[in-house]
Write a protein that binds this DNA or RNA. Structure first.
Lengths: 253, 253
DNA sequence: ATTAAAAACTGGTCTGACCAGTGTCCAGTG
DNA sequence: CACTGGACACTGGTCAGACCAGTTTTTAAT
């Protein structure tokens, strides 16, 4: 194996095993090169590898620093090996929505087909909560409504996959409702879509439910696209310097 | 932003957006350096970054190659977040196929819509391998054919999700082809379905491709259901120490 | 035609130089 | 005295050319 890779592994293990804390500065390239008796080039290559892996961040004139490790582990679903796809690639968001469009439609279809009276009760409850809520803070009800429908599909695999996708979205996007609702026309359209979806599921019309749900996701997706064109930042990228405050631990002056 | 990062970004977008297909060779470092008017060093740094991100693989003396998207990263021994769903619930297999039906259809749709000439070449190659193979041992070609189509969709999220589902299936089911092919009528039907799918994708008929792919999965699913009724064991419970070859995706050599 | 050596690729490493940001520290200024 | 400015000593970023080490292709001898 190449030297640069051995070094990148050694450094990564050093970091992950706790030898170096997030935000902490890594020795300079020249120091590492001297210390490990290799050229500066291989050090730089090793560091770039770690950089690509998100383990460190490098700032011109300052040095390289251990990146804050993904704060996962919370009750939410796995951060996933997919996360790296997002870094700097807004397009992936739309890939994601493209898939969601399909699955959300299927969920609606199955829900309309299989929902039991208990499911329907839950869906109704969630729907009313959605209607009664202040548009400004209705991210949670919105989620709850869709979740109720997905669960009514009685397909655990579907539930899991959609849940994963949603978690991935939450990590990259400001909640869509929070972005879209402020615009009155859009808000009204979304409310109508929700109502149509609700009714189709309750009345047991799978084909209609699927169509409405698919259209709903597509609508949201395109709305985001437009907003992006208008300059609003939809994607939230990891920005250097976004890893603040930890430096204070480090520089004793 | 540093030049090396701009380059790595450009290359990655090129790859994800379909300019370069998995397994394909990337121009040599010296060529890239000359073409982009930068030193070889920055090219190497950019490539190391992509390497760290798992986008490419480099082999001494041969060159750098686009990695099969979503190869592993979480691989090796991970039981997987979903595995617990299966324990003692054969039904989940059909839930899984239900979802796959939808996604495989979408993949076919997108592939028919977006496949580049390179994609088409790979698909054709996989298809011919499928036709030329002894039905008894054609689990791999079958997999390769479907994978080629999915990757031609140029939606990394879709690739990842389907790959996850497929891994789950491999852990629970004897490869469907191995079960189904012995029955001559079924084998013929499946071969015809494959051919239809192939032609629809190659001729750029998204709607047809989607329909055929969906029908194909459904057919396999129902065939399994029937076999189960007849007493054949389809489900294979996960056994410790089983964890079969996840590397099934890895290509090029 | 077969085979073995040679040449022409590929990536991997080294060296030493210079450019470009950042922070420090000290002299000269008000 | 406080303050500003600039030299200087860091940091990473880029460049050039050389050579080593695998791989493939071409060539030449059998």
């Amino acid at each position: 194996m190449a030297i640069s890779q051995e070094i990148s592994y050694r450094l990564e293990r050093l970091i992950l095993d706790g030898g170096l804390a997030p935000g902490q500065k890594i020795p300079s390239e020249r120091q590492l090169a001297a210390r490990l008796s290799v050229s500066r080039a291989v050090i730089r290559e090793a560091l770039h590898e770690l950089q690509g892996r998100g383990v460190i961040e490098t700032r011109h004139g300052k040095g390289s620093f251990v990146a804050s490790i993904v704060p996962n582990t919370d009750a939410m679903g796995e951060p996933g090996p997919l996360m790296h796809l997002f870094e700097g690639h807004p397009r992936t968001l739309y890939d994601l929505l493209e898939v969601r469009e399909q699955l959300e439609g299927q969920a609606a279809f199955l829900a309309a087909q299989r929902a039991t009276s208990i499911d329907k009760h839950r869906i109704t409850k969630a729907f009313k909560a959605l209607e009664d809520t202040d548009p400004l803070s209705n991210a949670r009800p919105d989620h709850g409504f869709h979740l109720a429908i997905v669960e009514a599909s009685h397909n655990p695999v579907l539930v899991h996959v959609l849940n994963s996708l949603k978690n991935m979205m939450l990590m990259t996007v400001q909640a869509s409702v929070a972005n879209l609702n402020p615009r009155e026309e859009m808000r009204k359209k979304i409310v109508r879509q929700h109502r149509q979806l609700y009714e189709a599921v309750m009345e047991g019309k799978p084909a209609v439910a699927q169509k409405v749900a698919t259209a709903h996701v597509r609508f949201v997706s395109e709305a985001m696209r437009n907003m992006e064109k208008e300059g609003s930042k939809v994607i939230r990228m990891p920005v250097p310097g976004d890893i603040p405050a930890r430096d204070s631990l480090q520089n004793p002056h």
